[in-house]
Design a protein around this nucleic acid. Sequence first.
DNA 1: GCTTGACCTTCCATCTGCTGGATAGTTTAA
DNA 2: TTAAACTATCCAGCAGATGGAAGGTCAAGC
Lengths: 136, 136
Amino acid sequence: MNISTIANKSGLPPKTIRYYEEIGLISPNRKQNGYRDYSETDGIKLHFLQRARSLNFSIEDCRKLLSLYEDKTRASADVKQLAQAHLKTIERKIYELKTMQESLNKLVASCHGDNDPDCTILDGLSGVFNSTDKSK
Amino acid sequence: MNISTIANKSGLPPKTIRYYEEIGLISPNRKQNGYRDYSETDGIKLHFLQRARSLNFSIEDCRKLLSLYEDKTRASADVKQLAQAHLKTIERKIYELKTMQESLNKLVASCHGDNDPDCTILDGLSGVFNSTDKSK
DNA sequence: GCTTGACCTTCCATCTGCTGGATAGTTTAA
DNA sequence: TTAAACTATCCAGCAGATGGAAGGTCAAGC
């Protein structure tokens, strides 16, 4: 299979597939003309990578997952541990983003958003909080 | 003020402060010896940048926010619009991460995590779902 | 047989937002 | 005076691709 065929099958763009080869995640055969020749196994691996990446696993995690996938004597505990660690990372990111969302929401909510230069968002960013209370 | 003084005040490391100068966010004076000499105004700007970055505003957004901050004839509507767009981005990211969290949680929950090679996580990543149901 | 267009190849640059390290000059305190 | 603690510049590298240039190849239509 040529690269664009496998690209369609795996859901990954050709550029990304070549990149994955460059960093040693896959190693397809070559035809006489120099074109890459992907096997069904390559397709399965690329699809696996696509899914793992879509769950935000890092490339290095993907590398480990792929080698566990290919190791038929693996312990599922090893896979689970990796996945749980990643889950923690995701949870941490969600928490961070929620904190930002909350802060930003407060700033946005109190800003009039009109033609006037007075802006609680800029006040908040510059460290001047409770500027709206000055009117009290 | 030398760079490490302003670094402590603004909460940004010296390397980052030099980088911000390189990309044109600030432009401190220089002393005769070539050292950067930061004013109070520079300090305020850097602190502003530190806060904006901590809310995940991109550098380009920060640049716009900073110029709005300095433009005393601004309309707060412009600031609000920028902030709201960013809020949408944050919300989108939270949603994406939650989707990932959910998927990964399901995979992890159904994996035995023992010495056995059978692994629902790897099955899920390779596209073989409901593998546990095969025992029924 | 020839051309055209859609492929494919490699290589190098770019993106975001810093961070680390090398090398060298300067200041400050003991 | 000397050593530590600054400061400066410059270049490389991180992740994870992506874009583009320059060139080779292949398949279809005339």
